[in-house]
Design a protein around this nucleic acid. Structure first.
Lengths: 350, 350
DNA sequence: GAATCCACTGAAAGCGTTGTCAATGAGTGG
DNA sequence: CCACTCATTGACAACGCTTTCAGTGGATTC
């Protein structure tokens, strides 16, 4: 049978209360007694039962992190950041992801209902699920992550999609002199896609450039889909000062590959830019101009906010906005800086 | 204040026991009563307190997953597989990673000590930590993941490094006719590296090929390091039927880039192969021949074993070995299959 | 009609902690 | 020497749930 606090007490010849005190508030107990208890704990290999403890303390030191889909580098970076921060602050992380948008509700429900977390960070990037967390009445501290549109009521950390997309679009138009830009996004239900598309249209209009419906495509963020799609069309897209703005790096790579395949030169005949700055962005030839999204920072910040709220539940909600960074490489055709030829992967940070 | 089972009981006009029964063993209570209780639960938004429940049931439906470092695609895939399987089986996942090898002990200690998991999967890939789990006496079901050398006592799931490396080496020698193969691994403390290196040497010897110490390098798995390293040497490596066997894809890519940069043609002047088959393997030009490691399967299997053991704690330990798959692309210079030119990313599975 | 059985329900005993409160005894100032 | 403070400790009541055991009536059997 597992050894409990009572066993320790007996062995040390003290009361349960004293053992508890040794564990939680050492300073309150006499040095000599304390040592006896410590020894008993060591000898018995005693480990406090976290259920009992949680029952009293009403906390578990565990935080939840719900993601749309753990697939891909994006989410793994979020996890990494969150995990590091959680450990730093003495918490553990319960991670879960939905198997598709319609599942979000179920997951959240389940996680909130069954699991033992002190607070929870939620990222929902597909619209149709709506705002699952609202359905569930709970007093559990919640932090909303990018995608889950901020509702004012909860803490949130978002990526400033607009700023990133704007920087990119302006670079394309002002610095690279693009005249025609095509937009290739994920599904229209994806909030990131829609945010980027909106900025795309705004900046195009502001620059008096045409934004025709047939220059806007919605695929599914996958390389394969985008490649198959671009393969047939890339020749038609080519032209001086023409560019494809893909809403993620995977699709941008696919376009580059399709172009290369079709002997459409990138960036001379067709510039291509992506979004996210995942690992592959530096692997393409030419290297991909894209927007770096501070993914791990996002995870870390979420955990930080969660802990702050745990410490002080009544403070007004904090909203953190993380600004992405334009990474100018070669696929956009920006004039290369003077000087030595950069090594592969070199990047000019704008 | 939070609503407890007593509140529900009062509202439904029944005893606590009955409410508990409705929740756990519906069939034992009269349909009419049951309905009254269900209604009370719904009206009050009652959610059982998992601490109290765990205290009685001595289980939390949470499983732990300890990884060496969440960085990189490899681990994110493990997480993905584990998460999916965990959800499927009705569990939640507590994930944590070490911030370096010496941290493994601490993490594990902490996780086992403080957290509430029914079982735990552990991956430790750096040797110096030894076998941290052995230090900690615990009756908690443990599954050891690749890297953590199997100790016979616990369930384990490992990647058959030998089979993968053998397939690759033999392909290189028999099919591609390589005469000189260089080995580029991670640090010597990394168990995967050492396993691959061992096979490398064995197969070389078996084929009567020279394996000189200066053809074996130990770097750190990073692109940058490998690139800087290869840059100065790649010309010296070049030669007919020469090849670099990098122990992961990142380093392989670095070698390809360094070679391309130095006008050493891949694979004609120098073949390059990697290991892992991460996302970037299909992005290099030429695409990288590598070995696909079933990462998400590994995560899923670990969870599966854990659950099996939970269900039947006394069964003898299960050891699962996952076989990697050779992915022949173009960087090894294998004769291209007859027929149409493959699309980028196309792969010939050996 | 008494004895059983059955379906259902309630009372109460834990589960392993923490925290409150009182008790003990030694030391202190008057 | 007394009232008082202080440091230390123990008893015991929660915490919210599950589960065992013992009713309670009505139906069934002999």
């Amino acid at each position: 049978m597992r050894v409990s606090i009572g066993d320790v007490a007996r062995r040390a010849g003290v009361s349960i209360s004293t053992v508890s005190r040794v564990i939680n508030r050492r300073e309150l107990v006499n040095a000599e007694t304390r040592q006896r208890v410590d020894q008993a704990i060591a000898e018995l290999g005693y480990r406090p039962n976290m259920f009992a403890r949680g029952l009293m303390l009403r906390k578990s030191d565990m935080l939840g992190l719900a993601l749309p889909d753990v697939h891909g580098e994006f989410y793994s970076e979020v996890i990494r950041g969150a995990n590091a921060k959680a450990r730093e602050l003495g918490y553990h992380l319960v991670i879960s992801s939905t198997n598709g948008p319609e599942d979000a509700q179920t997951l959240l429900e389940d996680l909130l209902r069954r699991s033992i977390v002190d607070g929870m960070a939620i990222m929902v990037s597909e619209q149709p699920g709506g705002r699952p967390w609202e359905q569930i009445e709970t007093r559990l501290p919640l932090v909303l992550l990018d995608g889950a549109v901020e509702d004012g009521e909860h803490d949130s950390v978002v990526i400033d999609q607009r700023a990133g997309a704007q920087a990119l679009m302006r670079h394309l138009i002002r610095r690279c002199g693009m005249k025609r830009i095509l937009f290739m996004g994920g599904l229209t239900t994806n909030v990131d896609t829609m945010a980027r598309r909106q900025v795309y249209e705004e900046v195009m209009r502001a620059a008096d450039l045409p934004v025709s419906p047939e220059d806007v495509y919605h695929l599914d963020f996958q390389y394969e889909t985008a490649y198959a799609f671009a393969r047939d069309r890339v020749k038609g897209w080519a032209g001086s000062r023409h560019c494809v703005f893909a809403a993620n790096d995977e699709m941008a790579c696919a376009v580059i590959d399709a172009a290369t395949e079709a002997r459409v030169r990138v960036p001379q005949d067709l510039a291509v830019v992506g979004f996210d700055d995942t690992r592959i962005a530096r692997m393409t030839r030419p290297p991909l101009t894209t927007v770096r999204v501070p993914m791990s920072t996002m995870g870390a910040t979420a955990i930080e906010l969660l802990c702050k709220r745990l410490a002080d539940p009544d403070q007004p909600p904090t909203h953190v906005s993380l600004t992405p960074q334009l990474m100018v490489r070669e696929s956009c055709g920006a004039a290369q800086q003077a000087g030595a030829k950069p090594a592969p992967g070199d990047t000019h940070v704008a």
